[in-house]
Design a protein around this nucleic acid. Structure first.
Lengths: 181, 181
DNA sequence: CCGGTCATGTAATGTGTTACATGATTAC
DNA sequence: GTAATCATGTAACACATTACATGACCGG
């Protein structure tokens, strides 16, 4: 079976939900998957074009008053098959992040103490904001009765746990840095 | 001040250590920074060329018997200044990872149970291996008396804490998945 | 009338990976 | 002899970001 990149599979997966237009896909990712996936319009629209060219989805243009026209993509049987096949494949390369905060801290010897503290304080604030977002999403989707709910909660739990651990690391590291002053 | 990409700053930072050749840089990153940074030779060698062209480092070729020649790059005053300047700049965009495991789990409704379990079990094993690596590095560098030691331990602590939290999430999620069978 | 949201798309650029090419030495 | 480590580099390709371009509607 022909293989595509992860961006394509992500979009294919989202097309199984209520989100069927480029704009809606961007929104869903930014609002609900932002802690483990990101995407730009520059990827979405060309990929949607590819998906329909490959016969993985059908385009239907829907018009509604008061809003611009939108192109909605509906998965075909072939599209669903490609998605399911990808889901069954093992992952060869487990994710390796690239974290600029850690990179700067690694070279902390050449950095001023103010910058070190500011770096970690800002990171911590960002993480606390994220944590609150996860809690808010959790409450919001708990109402739903989708088949997907269970899995969505798993990914939220991942976000909460790793964010919490990182916040604790920030606290500990800040403490260590301030102790020596 | 002219700005460069993070890869360039990462290399500039490493040139402050004992690692001064392309090969040594690759080794250091793969062995000690692998939980928050990664790089390929296809980035290293062109970037080193850029760094010397910009006058941020000087190249000296060292010959030793039994080994190929190597090009060693020594930071110039300008190079150190550029590095320090970057370290003082705040981070605008805090890291957002892209995690294929979570992406697949998010679409778990379309995945077989075996695949779900295998995905998480493999992920967990990988994480446990990583954790052991961090512990090993921690022991290895504890001997050193470098000025950098403190900061290196902070980044290792980050690795350990977030990996541990993710392992616990794997356990919890696996339990939930198996409960329903 | 201005900013926000809805909506689609392209082009240029930036960044990263992979495959290829080369070749010496060392240890088994 | 053959695999591993040391060592450098390029070219093709894959992938992602950003800026640009367009335009309607709605609320204040």
């Amino acid at each position: 079976m022909k293989s595509y990149n992860d961006t394509t599979y992500a979009i294919l997966g989202i097309l199984t939900t209520e989100c069927k237009s480029g704009y809606a896909i961007k929104q869903l990712i930014d609002r609900s998957l932002q802690h483990f996936w990101k995407i730009s319009y520059g990827q979405i629209y060309p990929t949607l074009k590819l998906i329909s060219q490959e016969g993985l989805a059908e385009v239907r243009t829907s018009t509604s008053t008061g809003k611009p026209d939108k192109n909605e993509y509906y998965l075909t049987a072939k599209g669903l098959e490609v998605l399911k096949n990808w889901l069954e494949q093992p992952i060869e390369q487990f994710p390796k992040e690239r974290n600029e905060v850690l990179l700067k801290l690694f070279f902390g010897h050449y950095q001023s103490e103010e910058s070190q503290l500011l770096l970690l304080q800002n990171y911590k604030e960002t993480l606390e904001g994220r944590y609150q977002t996860y809690v808010a999403i959790e409450h919001a989707i708990h109402q739903e009765t989708s088949e997907n709910l269970k899995y969505w909660l798993f990914t939220l739990d991942y976000g909460k746990r790793t964010t919490q651990a990182t916040i604790e690391w920030c606290d500990f590291t800040l403490e260590q840095l301030q102790k020596e002053e």
